[in-house]
Amino acid sequence: MFAAYRLRLILVVVCVAALAMLGTDRLVTRHFESALQEVNQSRFRFELDTLHAVLGRRMALGLPVSDDSSLRSRLSEVAEQTPEIIAIEIFDIEGIVMLSTDTSFEGDLVSLAWLDMVDRVRGSVATEEVWIVREGFVNTIGRPFRNSVGETVGSIVLTYRLDGKRTTLDGYRWTLVQDAGILLTVTLFLAGLVVFVALQPLAGSLAGMGERLKRLTATDRPTPNDGASDTPAGQTVRDVAFLATETAIIRALDRIGETAEQLRRMDRDE
């Protein structure tokens, strides 16, 4: 169906545009999620660096970590000020928690993933000492600290949740879906317009040709030029080979009619 093919062209355009938007959506959303993580990570990184500096000053003075009440209160103060922070912990080189905002963790062994990251940071030549472990929307950011002679003696870690950011991300995705819907509708409309403008003359021309061919087999068949220039379809028809075809059919029918008449005349003469 010609009309169906016009529709098919429009649908192809909308489908390709939808796929392109889907690809763009996946790409942008992934980068947006990453940017959201990075921006928040840099915020908590600042908090961690501040606490690390405090810890470093105490280590330089030779103060013990495990029963340092002022350090404990400082950690608690930071954790209370920032609701996203789940816990701040300080553990030794063996992975035993020395100080935590949640005192029930003290004395426990930290996760092997953390120790693995600490080992990696210690083994690398990079100046960047901060490591991060991501588990969905719960991130742990850590940094080793040294004693007064420069030996790594433990790490301070800050665990924070970004559950609230899930809403931000979902909201962003929903906005993109709405935008995609609007833009696909606009694309549909534009593609329809383009197809209509480009193919409508052809469709009119074809319809005109079909009508005239139908009349050829009727009793009141037209003469070669009958109505060709009277209608919009006729104007277009004149531009194509149709008139030559139509003329050939009419001439053939005329010739056949003349021949039949001559034969009849011969029969009558008999």
Partner: peptide, 26 residues
């Protein structure tokens, strides 16, 4: 050409909106 331009316009407009939204949310 017209149909390809339709595809491109749709995709680029979407990308522009997506980046703009991202900047605004961040």
């Amino acid at each position: 050409a017209g149909l390809v331009i339709c595809v491109l316009l749709g995709q680029l407009a979407f990308a522009w909106r997506a980046v703009e939204h991202a900047e605004r949310v961040l």
